[in-house]
Every structure is written in C-alpha cells, then in structure tokens.
Design a binder for these strands. Structure first.
Lengths: 265, 265
DNA sequence: TCAATAGTGTCTGTAAGACAGTATTAG
DNA sequence: CTAATACTGTCTTACAGACACTATTGA
C-alpha cells in the first residue's frame, strides 16, 4: 500500500491525482446563497459569520447601487480530514480510468451542488510538490464551471457545502485560494472575447441583464450604449420580438443568443 | 501489481500519469534538422524518406522565396514498445512526487534534445479514456517549449530522435498529432499578443529577423512597415546602436529586447 | 546605373469610449 | 409633470492594414 511507504521511497514515485472544480455562479449580495430569494435556509453559525463579513459585498465601482448588483459566488466544501481539517476547499474527486477527466469534474460538481453546468472547461494542472503542505504529493487537474442564473435557486447547502462571494472568501486549504484567483482572471479575460456571458443568462434576456453579467464577472461598469452596440455588432444576438417591463421606465427588448460555430478552447 | 489487474478491476482505479513536451524550434527547410548548415549528418533511411517528402517545405504564402524561409520544427522520438511500436511520438517522462511538473517536462526535453528551452508553458492535460488506443489508460500533462534560434545548431539526432517540420509530420502514436495541432494553434494565437517571438531570436536582431519569426509561427506574411511600427509602439524593443549588413542593400538597425513586467500565463 | 532590402509617410476603415440627446414607461 | 431606464446619434482617438515613397547598400 502506498500510504505505508516513507518519504524517501515516495520521492521517485508518481504523485496522486485529483480533479477539482472551481464553480462560479451569479448571485446578489444580502443573503447566504447566490440567489437568496425564496430559499429554505438553515443558517449555521459559520454561515452567519460569512454574511456578517459582507457589508455590501459587491459594487466595485459606484453608480446607482440602489439594488445590490450581481456578483460571482462559489461553493466550497469543508474538509473532513487532515491536513487542513475543517477548512474550506474546492469540491473534487478522483479520476477513473474509464471516464474522461471532464466527466470526473462534472460528477464532482454535480455531487456537491446537484447542478448541471452551462459551461465547463479545464483550467490548469497544478503539481508543485510544495503545494501539498503536509498532505501527500498531489497533482490536481482543475476545471472551472459556470452555473446558469436560473439554476442558482435550486442549489443545495449544508454544513459541509456553502456558497461564498468571491470578493470575500474564507481561509482555504492547500493552494486553493491561488487556484480560485487564477480561475477568476481566466474568466475575466475570456468573457471579453467569447460568448461566455450569453451562456449563463436565461434563454431570453435584456441588454441590461447581459451587461450586468459582464459587469459582475469583470468587476467593472460598462457604458450601456457602447455595450449594446458591441453585442449587436457581434451578430450573436437576435431580438425575440418580446419586451420586458420592470419598473417605471421604458420596457426593454428581449434578445436570444444564436449559436454560430464554436471557436472554443 | 497494477499490470496484472484485469480491465474491470482497472476501471475505477486512477489512470497512469505522464508528462509530455511539444518542443518547437525555428529552422529552414532543405535539410534534415532545424538549422542544417554545418552539422555532422549520419543520414538514416527514414531521415532521407522524411526529407524526400519535403519539396520546399514551407513558404505558405508566396513572395520572394529565393531563400527558404524559417518554419517550425519539432523533435520526435521513436517508440520502442507496444502499442504503436516504431511510430514517432512526443518526448515524455513520468512525474515524480518530489519535483514540479514543469521540471519533469524540462528534464524530458533536455534528455531527448540536450537543449534548454527559452520558454516553457503548460499546454493542456489530456485524459480521455479513448486516447490510450490499446495502451493502459493514461493522463498526459503536456507542456510546450520554444528553443532559441541560436541553439538549434547543437541539437542531437539519432535513429530514435529526429526533427520534423510541423508542416510535414509522420504518422504519430496515440493522439499526439492532435496534441501537436493544439500546441500550434496556441503558439500562433499567443505570438500575436505576447513577447514570445523576442524570446527565440538572438540577443540582437533586426526587424526583418523578428518579423520572420512571427511569419514562421503564424504561417502568414506580414507587412514590414506595419510590423515595424507595431513592435516599436510596444515599447519592448530598443536599438542597440549597431547595424547589420547582409546583402547588397541598406544595412539594418539591430534591436534588443527590454523586459518589463511579465504578464504571463 | 540597378536590384534589393531598410525605413518613413500617409490614407482608409474599424472599433472603442465619451457623452449628448431622444423614447417610453409608472407614478 | 418627474424619475428612471431604454435606446440612438455622433464625435474623438487609436490602431491595423494598404501602399506609395525615400534611403542605403553591393555589384
């Protein structure tokens, strides 16, 4: 059994492999889940601690701010063994010889959140020996996923699974904090030149909703006029013909996303 | 021992891990190595076969063509066991618990080519069960590397290690052909918005030389005037004050690369 | 002188950002 | 009417690509 070998014997052996997932979902601040409205909440002490640390979570650049604007949230699981027992960590599992790495990531995702991702992509493979920090040397193949805005009402939360805003993360096990930061920069870069945002809004959406997604991911605030033109110029959107009225102001046109090729990866 | 387990037993076990490297170097066509001039060549039959297939290897878009223009070459190793015995494959090795994945890639690179890369970056981790094709299920963590133009004269070649132009690759083992193609698209994309090209030209270089590197990697032909302006506008180049005379025409200014931050990864 | 490459000037089209102005709703 | 957001028009700047033009060398 590998576990019984001592350090010098293990040095030239292969490290263990794991698959982890950075799961990102849009949510509004002011509650303990990505989209708090109508959700049965069994608040545990540490959930309260988390939301206590969150004064007005997002709004990186001020403007309006009468309603909380959406931000990125991430589900973490609590470690139930050493090292880092009790710390929050990325959901993960182990690859199996008969399934693809992507499926391993997908199943790790679904078993912790009961959700199906709208987007899933390999992030990076981390394998530096120093990252194990008292654990066994480990290679982590990390994926990142986007959860659609409509699904986030049905997430599951418990004492060992909890959502956190990416702007206010607890101390994490291993190098998981750096992994999340890397995932966030990747997403922020990629949202600018791909159709990522259209994947996570609903089937029908207004320009403002789409823009809010971009703003939540990049943490910036975008000019509505220029954003609209840029999106329409991409040729990936078409009006559904329907409108949406939300407040005491002009109703907004609804659009749908029309897929072309997929210049992915 | 793992090797004695049957298929159904192996299914839920972790796959094996390997580290492979796609090594890219600049070379001119018309010989069997990246930079053929003055090299002791012990041509083997298959080396002759390879160069016989190569009429005028590169020049994707015609212009001038009085001298062969540089193109990307890649070293491959011949497999000495089943499956795919005798086929060409990417150099690789196995990760060890006490060294980083990058160091594992570096040592695989150095043991096959005796060269030190100017640039080394993780490409992707391939782990689909279908890719093993008769071998044991395998996760391959693939890196790609760039070899400097000046080093390519000292490469080592033998019956089991040989350089091929990327435009004319032999049949490869496993899914290594797709891996190389993926590496090439990554490099082509990245050369446009990073300082990759400056890494592989020498310390001093003319604008034409730098432009040739870009052209070789992207496979396009670039306007000298616009290319010059773009490079100078980047602020990463400074004239050394020296000139280089090559033919019966105006001598060219020499530049050097000045590093700023490293907005990498 | 000519051929060849080095290097400059300039025009055009595209796209992003700033920002003024018009449209339509609820109250 | 006002406040709020939806949407349109237009100006400026930056930059990439096309391409004409000048500069300097060897033969």
């Amino acid at each position: 059994m590998l576990g019984s070998a001592n350090v010098s014997e293990r040095a030239t052996e292969p490290p263990d492999i794991g698959v982890s997932v950075v799961i990102l979902a849009l949510g509004r601040s002011g509650a303990q889940g990505p989209d708090s409205t109508n959700m049965p909440s069994a608040q545990s002490p540490s959930a309260q601690a988390a939301s206590a640390q969150r004064p007005s979570a997002l709004s990186p650049s001020a403007q309006g701010d009468r309603y909380a604007r959406p931000a990125l949230w991430i589900p973490l699981v609590r470690r139930i063994r050493q090292p880092f027992l009790g710390r929050w960590a990325l959901p993960g599992g182990h690859p199996q010889a008969n399934i693809s790495l992507e499926d391993a990531a997908r199943s790790a995702l679904e078993s912790t959140t009961q959700l199906t991702p709208r987007y899933l992509e390999q992030l990076y493979t981390f394998g530096d020996p120093s990252r194990s920090q008292g654990g066994l040397p480990m290679v982590s193949i990390v994926y990142w996923a986007l959860i659609g805005a409509t699904e986030t009402t049905e997430f599951k939360e418990g004492d060992n699974v909890r959502w956190f805003p990416t702007t206010d993360l607890p101390p994490l096990a291993f190098d998981h904090r750096e992994i999340i930061d890397y995932a966030l920069t990747r997403v922020r870069n990629k949202v600018a030149y791909t159709d990522l945002a259209t994947r996570i809004v609903g089937d029908e959406f207004t320009m403002s909703q789409l823009r809010e997604v971009h703003e939540a991911i990049t943490g910036t605030s975008l000019d509505p006029a220029n954003f609209r033109r840029k999106m329409l110029a991409s040729g990936l959107l078409e009006p559904t013909g329907r409108m949406q009225t939300t407040g005491r102001h002009r109703p907004a046109r609804l659009y749908r996303y029309v897929a072309h090729e997929s210049p992915h990866r």
